[in-house]
């Protein structure tokens, strides 16, 4: 798993960590049961404050993406395949909404967008 912190980003650092770990879990790069680095280890590796990594982990726990076991560390939560799928769907929807927004700005009709999408699907399959 890679985590890249950008100081130029407008997002707070904890959010950047949160997003990237979430991404890794949702994409399946991190499997259920995989252990995550400890809060302090992650803070050391990223050279950020412990509070920052702690907050990122707390948010992940709230989203039920990870479980923290006292004395053992944090693990990718396994129980929640449907939930994770739901989460991923939600993200996809967000992206699609963005596409719709952009297409409006470009004066594209719904038809145009659909056609474009079909074209891209075909290209993806042939490649």
């Amino acid at each position: 798993m890679n985590i890249i912190i950008s100081n130029a980003s407008g997002d707070p650092i904890y959010m950047q960590i949160l997003n990237q770990i979430r991404q890794s879990i949702l994409s399946g790069e991190l499997q259920a049961g995989d252990s995550l680095p400890s809060i302090r280890q992650l803070a050391k590796d990223l050279q950020v404050s412990v509070i920052t990594t702690k907050r990122a982990y707390e948010e992940l726990e709230k989203e039920q993406l990870i479980d923290s076991v006292v004395g053992k560390g944090c693990f990718v939560s396994g129980a929640n395949k449907d939930f994770i799928r739901e989460q991923r769907m939600k993200r996809l929807e967000e992206k699609l909404l963005e596409v719709i927004q952009d297409s409006k700005e470009l004066n594209m009709s719904q038809q145009d967008v659909m056609e474009h999408l079909t074209l891209l699907f075909e290209e993806d399959q042939t490649s």
Binding site: R40, Q41, A43, K44, Q47
Partner: peptide, 12 residues
């Protein structure tokens, strides 16, 4: 130095 200090901070 950052690494050294973070090493020390591994112990909470």
């Amino acid at each position: 130095l950052l690494d050294l200090l973070a090493e020390m901070m591994q112990d909470e």
